[in-house]
Simulated assay, not measured.
Amino acid sequence: MKNKKSESTKTAPKNTPQSQPGFVFGKKNYLFMIIGLAVIALGFILMSGGGSDDPNVFNEAIFNAQRIHIAPMLVIAGFAIEIYAILLNPDS
């Protein structure tokens, strides 16, 4: 009596092409990822600063529009660009 495992291995073709591992993302994806990271970095750079040298003196510069509105919107836009870069079809 023959073993069923040996029969199944004998019937499988031996010359099946093996798929080559490649990059998951294409050139467009990486380009958009770099742009998104640059926008996020710019947002964090715009958020920094505004402190006072003397701890006894309060500096109102930390509450300007650049640090409260513009910089967080840039960070969120950068994350949106990153999501778009991940979901972008590299073949199109």
Rank of each mutant, 00 (worst) to 15 (best):
M1H: 12
N3M: 09
K4A: 14
K4W: 13
K4Y: 14
K4N: 13
K5C: 03
S6C: 05
S8E: 07
T9R: 15
K10W: 09
K10C: 13
K14D: 14
K14I: 12
K14N: 15
N15F: 02
T16G: 09
P17T: 15
Q18A: 13
S19K: 15
S19I: 14
Q20G: 03
Q20E: 11
P21K: 14
G22L: 11
G22T: 13
F23A: 08
F23S: 06
F25E: 05
F25P: 02
G26Y: 06
K27S: 10
K27H: 10
K28H: 14
K28M: 07
K28F: 12
N29V: 06
N29L: 04
Y30G: 15
L31Y: 13
F32I: 09
F32T: 07
M33C: 01
M33P: 01
I34G: 07
I34F: 09
I35S: 00
I35C: 00
I35H: 01
I35R: 00
I35N: 00
G36N: 02
G36V: 01
L37N: 02
L37S: 00
L37W: 02
A38E: 12
A38H: 09
A38P: 06
A38D: 06
V39H: 01
V39M: 07
I40A: 03
A41Q: 02
G43F: 00
G43Q: 03
F44G: 02
F44I: 04
I45D: 01
M47I: 08
S48N: 13
S48L: 07
S48P: 02
S48D: 05
G49Q: 06
G49T: 11
G51V: 02
S52E: 11
D53C: 04
V57Y: 11
F58K: 04
F58V: 03
N59G: 04
N59P: 00
E60I: 10
E60F: 12
A61I: 01
I62F: 08
F63P: 00
N64Y: 06
A65M: 11
R67F: 04
R67N: 05
R67T: 08
R67Q: 10
I68D: 06
I68V: 12
I68N: 06
H69P: 04
A71Q: 00
P72E: 09
L74G: 03
L74Q: 03
V75I: 11
I76H: 03
A77Q: 04
A77I: 11
G78S: 02
G78A: 01
G78K: 00
G78D: 00
F79C: 14
F79G: 07
A80Q: 03
A80T: 09
I81H: 03
I81G: 02
I81C: 05
E82G: 09
E82Y: 07
Y84M: 10
L88H: 09
L88R: 14
L88T: 10
N89M: 11
P90Q: 15
S92D: 15
S92R: 14
S92W: 07
